[in-house]
Design a protein around this nucleic acid. Structure first.
Ligand SMILES: NC(=O)c1ccc[n+]([C@@H]2O[C@H](COP(=O)([O-])OP(=O)(O)OC[C@H]3O[C@@H](n4cnc5c(N)ncnc54)[C@H](O)[C@@H]3O)[C@@H](O)[C@H]2O)c1
Ligand SMILES: NC(=O)c1ccc[n+]([C@@H]2O[C@H](COP(=O)([O-])OP(=O)(O)OC[C@H]3O[C@@H](n4cnc5c(N)ncnc54)[C@H](O)[C@@H]3O)[C@@H](O)[C@H]2O)c1
Lengths: 220, 220
DNA sequence: ACATTATCGATATAATTATATCGATATAAA
DNA sequence: TTTATATCGATATAATTATATCGATAATGT
């Protein structure tokens, strides 16, 4: 009956940031918290935080704010982090291996249960307790395990082919770390992890700072 | 004289995507390209691409589009990728090591010249030709090398302290992979690499798909 | 040479997102 | 008990970002 509320993308990007802060607050023994406080600490706007938080369905109390536990629960539920999803990873190289050992993914409701590679030297071993199997086994095994999330940490030139195999495997959402556009049907969701976008921001901001300083020193 | 044009953040995020596509096109021998073509291939809006591209200063020709080489150059120049920046990395663990071996960073104008760690077993070795030194040497060395970009790939609990040391080192921009908010002065730019935000999107979208299917199968 | 067409740059409109304001209310202080 | 205050949720306004439209122009075909 209920229509699926389309959470704005910017909100979806900010919510994990609040969560991280709230877990930290909880660890410090803080029981309830207001948007004003969060905003001060994270240097954000309190109205925006209130709105973001409101989207998750929780209601706060005037003067007090929100109960930290309830707030954490409300956000995690909204992000679906309370419901663990299995995922496969393809490409157990430098980046892939780092991911296999990253315990935090489980906190975000993501559990990498098996990895695949084409390098025979890497397969049949375990990295951080995650088995590494040959890529040939992916389609059948993933399909039978009903896994819907695939992570690509293989070279860019292999990414499209791997994506297509993933789709055959029943994967519905692909988290792509290879710097290559994936051409997939409309019903497959691709999240591109573009580290290069971060670098754009960093370098541009740094240029602004440098230019400003140059201008300033010239005017002296 | 010229005011620093403030490129919209969404544009800054999209430009690297175009670049990646354009390099691929160039490799295929394509000499000139139109926004319509790019839009079709990347499944984006051509007007948006034209606007993004226009911000970098290039002018195209009606009916033809843009020269691929010139377009690549215009975007890379705008992103400051043609001008290599040195960076330091702190925390040569799983993720940090992967980064040290990642050749693409250089294409984005980012060169990690030295890494620091506090684990004596890791220091004084080289990983992918990048020297690993003890964290105690960071402030002095970084300051003397005039490096302005710092990457944090150390545990979250250490992140704030490392950030403060980085600021002492003359670092102006911090790329933070630790899931922790950094409290820094206004003149320091922090780019938080929130992998958890990507997961939010993936899990939410997957939930939408699943819910829709459930609804559909119930109505049958 | 002239018409046709694809695409450009610019401008106008629409949609989304962020911020400011305001009445209501729970807590704390007078 | 009454008053002051911080914060909430809702609503209104402003800013940013995305999309649609249009005249101008370079290439192509008649
Ligand atoms: N290393 C980084 O820091 C980093 C950062 C951002 C993005 N990336 C991207 O992530 C990807 C992996 O980077 P990396 O540094 O880990 O590279 P890597 O070479 O260390 O690892 C790639 C792995 O993929 C495997 N592989 C290759 N083709 C395959 C196939 N068809 N099927 C299955 N496995 C296959 C290889 O055997 C190897 O183990 C690349 O696309 C890279 O651009 C890497
Ligand atoms: N591994 C991943 O896939 C991944 C993904 C996203 C974010 N992260 C984040 O990146 C950070 C590193 O993750 P990891 O998996 O590589 O952890 P890790 O434990 O493998 O590496 C951390 C490294 O930091 C070093 N270190 C600790 N304290 C230090 C200090 N004060 N100064 C200098 N070095 C110090 C350690 O000696 C270790 O080598 C963590 O904050 C993690 O949450 C990791």
């Amino acid at each position: 009956m209920s229509t699926i509320k389309p959470t704005p993308a910017p909100t979806l990007r900010r919510l994990p940031k609040y969560l991280e802060y709230l877990h930290e607050a909880k660890r410090k023994g803080i029981a309830s918290i207001s948007c004003t406080t969060i905003a001060n600490d994270l240097k954000l706007d309190s109205v925006q935080i209130r709105k973001d938080i409101g989207i998750t369905g929780i209601v706060g109390k005037p003067k007090t704010g929100y109960n930290v536990d309830e707030l954490i629960h409300s956000i995690e539920k909204h992000l679906n982090w309370d419901d663990m999803s299995s995922a496969i990873l393809v490409g157990a190289g430098n980046l892939g291996k780092a991911f296999l050992g990253y315990e935090n993914f489980k906190k975000y409701g993501l559990n990498i249960v098996v990895a695949f590679d084409k390098d025979r030297n890497k397969i049949d071993g375990n990295i951080f307790n995650v088995p590494i199997l040959h890529i040939d086994k992916m389609v059948d095994l993933t399909y039978r395990m009903k896994i819907h999330i695939g992570i690509i940490t293989a070279p860019a030139d292999e990414a499209q082919e791997i994506a297509e195999l993933m789709i055959l495997s029943g994967i519905r959402a692909i988290w792509n770390f290879a710097p290559r556009h994936l051409d997939v049907p409309d019903n497959i969701y691709v999240e591109n992890a573009e580290l290069s976008s971060d670098i754009s921001h960093i370098k541009r901001r740094l240029k602004e700072i440098t230019d400003k300083e140059k201008k300033y020193s010239e005017s002296n």
